[in-house]
Design a protein around this nucleic acid. Structure first.
Length: 496
RNA sequence: GCGCUUGUAGUCCAGCCUGGUAGGAUGUAGGCUUCCCAAGCCUGAGACCCGGGUUCAAAUCCCGGCGGGCGCACCA
């Protein structure tokens, strides 16, 4: 019995959700193209993020460059922490991290030390591999894609390993151009790149992937969130360090118990909870894991990971990090630029603190595929997707019962009417009507419109609902409004 | 990156062991059929992952590469 993820990924490629990138040249591991069906779904997920995280008054969206100068990533700590010193056991050919082996032997952390130093210490402590073999030379493996800008072979730039850094680099000008006050929230949706040693698990570990991030800059002395009282009783599922199961807890209690650093962090987590629900991930399939202090990334003071439960096991769908002033402080130092700000309420200039939710688009997309996937059943003898209308690739398919006698022409007019009425739809006249319904189910289209001989006389059509196969007769003039109205009912309530 | 395994039309699969015209199903395009949950008939287009080797001859045997799956390692 094949694993669910295997089947889902197969179907995703077969039905045009995903395409293997550069397939005619043999494909590339860890890189996928989004096909004609997948691309609109991804776009809709990203737009839901925008709707929830960026369209609030005072929230801004930017699009920064994907190439980042080397110095910026040295300052952010990525140049050091994204480079793994790997060493091979000559006997078993297994790879180990030199700094981890040293840490085991000496009890102290060797992270970020130079290859030369680690090599010296390995010899000094006469360290052998855990398999008992002799160790080879250390090779630095950089998780970032290097780039050479200009007429040089030197790697003087990198493809960004996260979208966040662009926001920090642009912060000063945006702050000054937008009222010079805090809080200030800047979001970004875009591609990031990590040169994974061995990409696996389809969309879970990719070399090129998309992120949705928001940097919420605030005065650390004023960490309230406007409007928090409206949502403080809302509950999210939280998993505590060392615990296996998640528990339901209200946002205000989560702050009291120090699971979340403050109201800002609690709000940004609640918005993620809403985004996942609106994309169609069932509440039981995800929760927020509180990271223990010693498990934090190099930039973070507090971290909450969104964990998704999938057939791969638990995978990380997002991270919410309290980055403090780490990034701005380091960029200020390395670039020799003053990134502190003068606020009306403060005597001295301060460096803003930042809380950042960082969401993986591709992982969320995958999780959606897996949770919407439906096996064959007595009701439907084919595999289909139960996408909420908000993220379905099309809202409707338009089919003439026969492709002659003017039915095709009338169907073409209805497609036009629907598009003008704001309904994304597609047209198909191939095969029997039942076959076209099945095809629509297979890519998760929620509504099918069929034009028959009566349609010409009575100016009405059949609308067919994906999930129960039910049909009703409806006038052409009210069709677009009816579909839009129905699609809205699939929505979870709005925030803000 | 290491080990095992795998690669044939858009998709699923046969052929490979034992070298000799690549076959089926499904999809797709066109035609016929007043077709509402993958109906039927006719016609057409469509494939041996890439490179090298052995051989008169390679989808088939051998080597290498690339991709997929599993295990190990790695996973900011």
């Amino acid at each position: 019995m094949a694993k669910l993820y295997e089947r889902v990924l197969d179907i995703a490629v077969q039905r045009g959700f995903l395409l293997p990138s550069a397939e005619i040249y043999g494909s590339m591991a860890g890189i996928y193209d989004y096909g004609p069906i997948g691309a609109p779904i991804k776009r809709k997920i990203q737009n839901l993020f925008r709707e929830i995280f960026i369209t609030c008054p005072g929230f801004l969206e930017i699009e920064s460059s994907t190439i980042v100068p080397k110095e910026a990533l040295v300052a952010s700590g990525h140049a050091a922490s994204f480079s793994d010193p790997l060493v091979e056991c000559k006997k078993t050919k297994k790879q180990y991290r030199a700094d981890h082996l040293l840490q085991e032997a000496t009890g102290k952390s060797w992270e970020g030390k130079s290859v030369e130093e680690l090599q010296k210490r390995l010899k000094e402590h006469k360290i052998t591999s855990p398999d008992g073999g002799e160790l080879g030379e250390i090779k630095a493996f950089n998780l970032m894609f290097g780039a050479s800008m200009g007429a040089t072979n030197e790697k003087n730039a990198y493809l960004r390993p996260e979208t966040a850094q662009g926001i920090f680099l642009d912060f000063k000008r945006i702050f000054l151009q937008n009222g010079s006050k805090l809080p200030l929230a800047i979001g970004q949706v875009g591609r990031s790149y990590r040169n994974e040693i061995s990409p696996r698990q389809g969309l879970v570990r990719m070399r090129e992937f998309s992120q949705m991030e928001l940097e919420y800059f605030f005065n650390p002395k004023k960490d309230e969130m406007p409007g928090f009282e409206k949502i403080q009783k809302k509950e999210v599922r939280v998993r505590l360090p060392g615990e296996k199961n998640a528990i339901e807890v209200s946002l205000e209690d989560a702050i009291k118990n120090k699971y979340f650093a403050n109201q800002i962090m609690a709000t940004l987590i609640y918005w993620q909870h809403q985004l996942y629900l609106r994309v169609g991930i069932p509440a039981k399939k995800f929760h927020f894991a509180i990271l223990p202090k010693d498990g934090l990334p190099h930039y973070s003071q507090a971290n909450v990971d969104l964990e998704m439960i999938t057939s791969y096991g638990v995978i990380e769908g997002s991270g919410t990090a309290y980055r403090t002033d780490f990034d701005l402080k380091n960029h200020a130092k390395h670039s020799n630029t003053d990134l502190s700000v003068k606020l009306p309420e403060e005597e001295e200039k301060i460096i803003p603190h930042v809380i950042e939710p960082s969401l993986g688009v591709d992982r969320l997309f995958y999780c959606l595929l897996e949770s919407a996937y439906k096996e064959k059943s007595p009701e439907k003898e084919w595999e289909w997707f139960d996408f909420p209308p908000a993220v379905a690739p099309y809202l409707a398919g338009v089919f003439p019962l026969m492709k002659k006698d003017g039915l095709d022409k009338l169907a073409g007019e209805i497609v036009q009417t629907l598009r003008e009425g704001g309904v994304e739809c597609y047209y198909s006249q191939s095969g029997s009507i039942g076959k076209r319904y099945a095809r629509a189910d297979e890519i998760g289209v929620p509504y099918c419109i069929t034009i028959d001989y009566d349609s010409k006389e009575k100016k009405d059509v059949t609308i067919r609902y994906r999930n129960d196969g039910g049909q009703e007769r409806i006038s052409i003039s009210s069709l677009a409004d009816k579909i839009i109205e129905d699609a809205k009912k699939g929505k979870v309530s709005l925030k803000c």
